[in-house]
């Protein structure tokens, strides 16, 4: 019964979508050079498109046989030699045991200053609360006093929310904090953002107090 109902709905949806006008000019092609300047971080470059023939080699093969070949799936660990097809390096330094730590421009005392000014958010919110203005203004003052310093704003979430949603929410929090700093007169090119979603909690407990500590944006010095 459920099956029939869904078939009807699907058919109805197809009819509806068939009646929709496509807007041919709606797609905006975006080239790799269109990156907002202050966001470019001089890291990897977008590799060029590989020839279409490289994938067609496999398309004739039935699924079951392709799957058999996974038994020898190579681990992508051997990339410090930079041997990628285009010569672009997704190589990086040896990160044994941890995320690469950003190098401090100024000193550990300044990192502590920034760490002390982590800002916090309400549940499922990326709005800057008035209670966080003081911390943000401290960050503004720091950046004004250290004109060579650049910081990365890193957004985080508590674990209530799906992993995918939280990654996006964390990015929104970072962007909100960055926006505040820009409005306070800090040059946008000194401020980058990223999100860790719920993968780097500051507190591991399950209380509201723990969750509140995790809904945050941190300010990290970058070289």
């Amino acid at each position: 019964m459920m099956v029939r109902f869904s078939t009807l709905l699907l058919a109805a949806a197809l009819l509806i979508s068939a009646g929709c006008q496509r807007k041919p000019g709606y797609v905006t092609p975006v080239g790799a050079t269109d990156v907002v300047p202050e966001y470019s971080d001089g890291g990897w470059e977008i590799i060029s498109e590989e020839p279409a023939t490289s994938t067609t080699t496999y398309t004739e093969v039935p699924d079951s046989t392709v799957i058999d070949s996974w038994d020898s799936t190579p681990v992508g660990s051997d990339w410090s030699d930079g041997s990628s097809s285009t010569g672009q390096s997704f190589t990086g330094e040896d990160t044994t045991g941890s995320i690469p730590e950003p190098t401090s421009l100024i000193g550990s005392r300044d990192e502590e200053t920034l760490a002390a000014n982590t800002i916090y958010f309400g549940f499922d919110s990326s709005t800057i609360r008035q209670s966080e203005f003081a911390s943000l203004n401290n960050v503004v003052a720091f950046l004004q006093n250290n004109p060579g310093a650049r910081i990365k704003v890193e957004g985080h979430c508590d674990e209530r929310g799906t992993s995918a949603y939280n990654l996006a929410l964390g990015q929104r929090r970072a962007a909100s904090a960055r926006e505040y700093l820009i409005n306070a007169g800090i040059d946008a090119s000194r401020l980058s953002t990223l999100s860790w979603g719920e993968d780097r909690p500051a507190a591991l407990g399950k209380t509201e107090a723990d969750y509140a500590k995790n809904r945050r944006a941190e300010f990290v010095l970058v070289q």
Partner: peptide, 30 residues
Amino acid sequence: YLKGNPDIIAHNLRSGQRSVIANFGGTNSG
């Protein structure tokens, strides 16, 4: 996040070769 930023990576499961799809500033995901 190997390079410190959430970047989208392509990984050839047969050769182990990896390349970068998107490493724009901000978050590249999903």
